[in-house]
Amino acid sequence: MSEQKIDGIIEKYRGKPGALIHALTEIQHELHWLPREVMEKVAEALEVPFSLVRQIVSFYKTFSLTPKGRHEVHVCTGMTCHLRGAAKLMAKVAEITGLKPGETDTDSRFTLERGSCLGSCSIGPELIVDGKHYGRMTPDKVEDVLKRYE
């Protein structure tokens, strides 16, 4: 199923080198990582050198060369969130998920990432799960939020 979907994405962009980042982003969202075979397929279909695909994938943090969890948890540790207690929030999230920033758990449920200012200082401390923003997050509330993601 998933493989067909990936092939569909690749076919959509066949022969369009300029769409490299679009194609990779869609695949990343689907698989939560970019296996080497997929990168090779993308390079061939979009007619770009494999070395360029590798360069792009390793350059942007969006892309991952190792499997990530189904849900990406970002805790903002930017200056404003830091002053509003991001360190405690991060400690709590780390405790609940059992992860350090950058790690993925064994059943691929969560990947925990640290963000340096995610852009919503006025509602800090901020937590983002799969692109959804949770503002004014506290260590007490965060467990309920994370429970929603299986």
Partner: peptide, 24 residues
């Protein structure tokens, strides 16, 4: 490698301080 030989056997990987050259 890219412009003259058109083989693309080598390229950059990583960004910022981790950037380095790497052969395919």
């Amino acid at each position: 490698c890219a412009e003259v030989k058109q083989k693309n056997a080598i390229g950059f990987v990583g960004n910022g301080p981790e950037r380095e050259i790497s052969f395919v």
